[in-house]
Structures are given as C-alpha cells and as structure tokens.
Design a protein around this nucleic acid. Structure first.
Lengths: 198, 198, 198, 198
DNA sequence: AATGAATGAGGGTTCATTCAT
DNA sequence: GATGAATGAACCCTCATTCAT
C-alpha cells in the first residue's frame, strides 16, 4: 500500500472514528452528516466521496465497530487469565471497546438490514461467536459452566449482561455491585450452595 | 369532573395513546408531531395546546407509560402465584405492557432529563420499586433468593433481563431458551447444586 | 366555496402561475422550488403543503396550462371569423396562451409520465383535440382542406407550426414571414396553382 | 500533427463524443461532468484541462455537432437524387445525424449565447445555410418551389419540419403519415390542384 | 499532462413550531 | 378550544470546480 493509499485509508478511518464516536454518544438519527464532517475535519462532500450515503456510512461504521470489538474479545479469550476473570473482563471492562455502543445504533442496523437476510447477524456470528465458543468450552472443562446448558443460552446471557452494562447510565450505578452481579451470574439468585460433602 | 373536563381528559389520553403506540413502534425521533396528530385524529396545534412541546409530550408519555407498567407489576406481585412463576411472568410476559418499549424511548428520556436531577429515575423508583421490594421479600422468605444479596443487585438483574427480552428481535430468538434462562437466573451458569443432605 | 376555500384556491393559483411563468422562461430543471416560492411570495414549505413534491407541482402546472390553453382554443374555434383567420390566429397569436411554453416543460412531462400510460397524451387529447376536429370539419366543408387528408396529418401540421412558432427566439425572426408561412401552409411550397377554369 | 498532438486530439474527440451522446440522450442539465468523464474514460479534471468549464464544453460540443450535421447535409445536397427525395431525406431521415438532438441542447445554447451576439446563429448560418441555398435553387429551377417564396421562409419551413420530426416521441407517431406530410409540404393543406389544362 | 481528493454552493424535502381565524 | 395555513431551520445529497501530487 503506497503513500496515497495509506493516507486515503487514514482519512477513511478518521471519518469512521468520528462517526462511531458521535453515533455512540447521541444515537444515529440525532447525528447529522455535517456534524460528522466537522468532527472528522473534512467537508460533508468528502464523506460522500468515501461512503455512498448516510445509510452506507452507518453500515460501514458497524462493520468497523464489530471488527474492533471482536479483536478485543480475541485478546481476552486467549489471554493467560483464570476463567472467571475473563468473564468479568468481558462483561465489565468498558475499555475493551473504546466506548459503549449506543443502543439505537444496534436497533437501526437491525431494522434497516432485516430485509437483507440478517446480514448484520451473519457478520456478528462470523466475527464474534467463535471466540465465545472457545471460551465456553474452557468454562465447561473447568467446571464453571453447567454442562447441560446450551451455548446459545449462555451466549445470550453474557451478551445481555455485557450490552446492558455498557450503557453509560447503567454502568455508573452498577460499579459498586460488580461483585454481586458476578455472583449472580455464576451462582444464580439462589446463591452459592454447598456441594456434597463440601 | 364535569363533561367538559372529561372530554378534555379523554382527548389528552387519545393523544398520549397515539404517541405511545407510535414511539414504541418506530422510536422517538422517527415519529413526527404530524403523525401523532393524524393517529389521534386531532390537529397538530391541538397537541400543542395540551403539551407545550414535543419534548414535554415525550415526557408526559413516559409518565403515562410508567403508570401503566407499574399497575401491571402490582397485579403480578399481589397475585396468588408461586414466587418463581411471578418472576417468570415479569421477565417473559410481554403482555404485561401493551407492547415493548422502544429502546430509544428510554434512552431519550435518560439523556434529556439527566440534567433535571434524574427526574425520570425518581419517578421510576417511586412507582415501580416498591412492588419489587415486596416481591423480593417474598423470595427471600421462601428461600429463592440468597439473603446476602442486596435489593439493588437483584433489581438490576431482573430489570436487565426484562428490558432485554422485551426487545422484539431478541424475544423471538429467546423463546425456546426460556427454561434455560430461568435456570441460569435462579442457579447461575454453574447450575443447580445439591444442597447438604438433600 | 367559502372564504377559506377561495383564499386557499387563490394561493394555489398564485403558486401555479409563478411556477408556470418561471418554467416557461427558464425550463423546468433550472427553476428551483425556492425561486418559485420567492416569485409567489410564499415560503418553500407552503408549496410543499399544496403540492407533494416538485414532481407533483410540475404535473399540476401542466394540467393548469392545458386547461388554460384549451379554453383559448375553444374561443377561437367558435368565434365568428373566417376559417383562414382562425388558423392564423391559432398558429401565430401568442396572446392565446399567456406566454410560450418552454420545450423542456413538454419534454419533461413526456419522459416522466411515459410510464403512466401516456397520461399526458390522454389529457391533451381529451381537452384540445375535440376543438381541432370541429375546426377541420369547417375547413373541409369550405374547401380549404383537401378532403383526402387525414385529421392526424393536419393536426400534426398545425401543432408543429404552432409549437415551433411559440418559441421566443423563433417568433421574432418569423414575424415578417407570416404571410409567406401562411401561404405555404395552405398551398405548399409549390405555391398557389390555378384551379381549372379559374 | 505529431503523435502527441494526435493523441491529444483523439482524447478531445472522445470527450466531445461522450458529451454529445449523453446530452442528446438526457438533455444538458441532467448530465454531470462526472458522468461525461466516466463515459469518456478520463478524469473530471482532464475535461477541465481541455475545456475551461461546463459552459465552454457545451459550446464546443455544439460546434462539433453542427460540423457533423452540415457534413451530412452536404452529402445529401450534392447527391444524385431527384429533388423531392432530397427533401424527404433531409426532413425524415434520422440517420443523417447520429441521433436526435435533444431540444434542451438547442434551447440552452440559444439562451446562453443570446448575449454573445447570436454567435450560435452565425455559426449555423455559415455552416448549414449555404447548402440549403444550393438546394432551393435546384428546387426552383425544377418547378418544385414557388419562385415567389423567399429563401428564409422555405428554410424556416424545412428546418421546422426537420427539427420537429427529430423528436423521438413525435417521430414514432409520424411515420405512418410520411406520405401525407410530404404532400402537405409540397401542395399545402388545400391539396394538389390541377394545373391549367393539365 | 493527468488524476484522486476535496469542497462551497445550492437543491429538494421534512420537521417542530407559530399565526390567524 | 380547535384548526388550517405558514414558516425558519435543518437535513441528506449532488454538482461544477479547484487543489495537490
């Protein structure tokens, strides 16, 4: 990739970054192309030169986001850390993805692309799910996960916790409860039971 | 309340209903005053006569919504049903509130009102939390809830499950996992452990 | 029609007039909604309140124009004037329609509506052709028109002359040739031939 | 002209051809520089290197067009064909110019250049009129044209028929009327009269 | 000479809100 | 009190044109 290409890619990334930041902060429909342009220090038209339409930009930002996020997953999953800590990190560590993803972002994509054969879903599954699979296998082997539980159910559960906690307003309130939440996750609301003869 | 008043109140409710329906279906920013007016069979200006601005309308719709929702809670909490079924109902039963509440609705309010000293939060706490308290007390007495768990933690957990599952797209996917999800909620991902001497 | 209605209709006509004037002067694509708004002394949005889109406005302007034009035809056809003078008037008299119709106007409509089953064509035929028929019958009876000529052919011919001469730039140049053009129309380029025994 | 020059000229022609094609198909204002660039396989800037502005490009395309068209005239006029057939060819033969010229093209030039002392007019007169003159002389000598008719009048008449028939939509409708139209052109709407003692 | 990248100006359209009746 | 009519501001997008390489 020569200098031209590199600078071009850089600018594209600038725009994607600016858009991602704004989308996550204010939602999608509240953010105008002109605001993104200002944030990225380019003209509106430049954005249109790189992305055909706002729709397309949103789509590309999503891909960009999923890429980033799944690469963070990967690091955690293959890191040299005890299983429970990995889970904690995934659920609670906001640093893992630069910032939270605004819910509208997800909603928008789900709606807009629902006609395209769950394209979004497909991408997500391809990129992120494999790492989860590896993680859950580890969890089961080490006795942290009930072997009777399906991968889908656990995936849903982790996803939910993660997504929910990512929300700015929730995050603040939940911080002091981290330990408790983790416990519920592992042992349920009924609490840790003594094992036989333990 | 005389006839005039009553008719006036009725019209106000019509508008609130129309707005709520549309907000939940399409999100807030996608719904225009003109659409609400059409749905409620009044003129746009009539809406302004009752509610100062779109902002104010949204706010009032939220109050209206919370009222409705908490009344549903109340019924469940005080119903003659085993504790686990109450929980299931709260988490999974979509009927409890007419339709799902669009996420943007929540987000919008959280953001718009965050400056107003968590006004929304206050309302929610006042209306809905008391019922949860009653419910959790019951749960602890019957041994379904670890007595060491704080009310906040459980509340958060229930809320999260409930909110998340309310999402249209999630709901469909989760249906077959209902049993498993419930199990995780009660016993954690580690699964049901045998109690001593049980 | 009460006062409200009348004023509304009046405003609609103002807009149609403004649009017609501008379209005929500058063509369709060169005229922006904002210019029409300025010319009609209303805001852009008002135009959108009356006409759904620029497309629709153009369409309505066309109907408006055809109505006006055919009413002018009617007057000429049923007036108490010798046949040749009627023809002359139709072809040369610009006053008959306020101003010339810009060619792009016609083209635009033809293209845009070609999918709608020649809607434009239908309107034109309904409104204007009947008067031509009356006129040609008169011409044939009085021996001014070769009885072997089909109505279509003559209609085409008159139309063409009329349209062509309506063009601003052509009109100026043609004025001194009026007599000659009329002669060619009646007697062809071969000129007036003596009739038998005349 | 060396190789450089020749290649340069070729590229210029490519651009002119591309522009002419597109203008005739879609009109002038609907065609963007970027589309012309794509059609001609050059960059937008290259177009600006050869032609100062879109305005200038349009102008040059017109010259290019008139050149082409008048060369077609020339061939017909000097061909070995009876006079009436030459006329027919000129009026009805679309092949003579690659495709019809979009009306807007003509209009645009007429308007834009009207301030420049009828520059367009001048070019047209210089290039095309001389051939018409030759033709009409032939017509008069052979008795096909009334010797009392001025050249201007006949020129106008032929031009008009030609232009009008060139229109795509008109052309289709007129085809079955060719014979009749020709007759009207030669003998007028009054029809062929018997000559004395004929 | 040729191009990819960038842009100011402007176009059609929608929206929350106000005016006038 | 209720409404039809009107609007300023903003949005997405396109275009002719220029900059930088």
């Amino acid at each position: 990739m020569d200098g031209f290409q590199r600078r071009k890619e850089q600018k594209k990334r600038n725009i994607l970054d600016a858009a991602l930041t704004l989308f996550m902060e204010y939602g999608i429909s509240k953010v105008s192309i002109s605001e993104i342009a200002k944030e990225a220090n380019v003209s509106q038209v430049t954005i249109y030169n790189y992305f055909e339409s706002k729709h397309q930009l949103i789509h590309d930002v999503f891909i960009y986001y999923v890429d980033k996020a799944s690469s963070d997953f990967e690091k955690i999953v293959y890191s040299d850390t005890p299983f429970p800590d990995k889970i904690k990190k995934i659920i609670f560590n906001k640093k893992e993805v630069a910032k939270q993803i605004n819910e509208e972002f997800y909603q928008y994509l789900m709606k807009e692309y629902s006609t395209e054969g769950n394209y979004i879903e497909k991408i997500y599954v391809e990129k992120a799910v494999p790492y989860f699979t590896v993680l859950f296998k580890e969890g089961k082997e080490q006795g942290f996960i009930d072997p009777n539980l399906s991968e889908e159910a656990i995936l849903f559960y982790v996803q939910m916790l993660k997504d929910y906690i990512q929300k700015e307003d929730v995050y603040q309130k939940i911080l002091p409860l981290t330990e408790e939440i983790t416990n519920i996750f592992f042992y349920g609301i009924i609490g840790k039971q003594k094992k036989d003869k333990e």
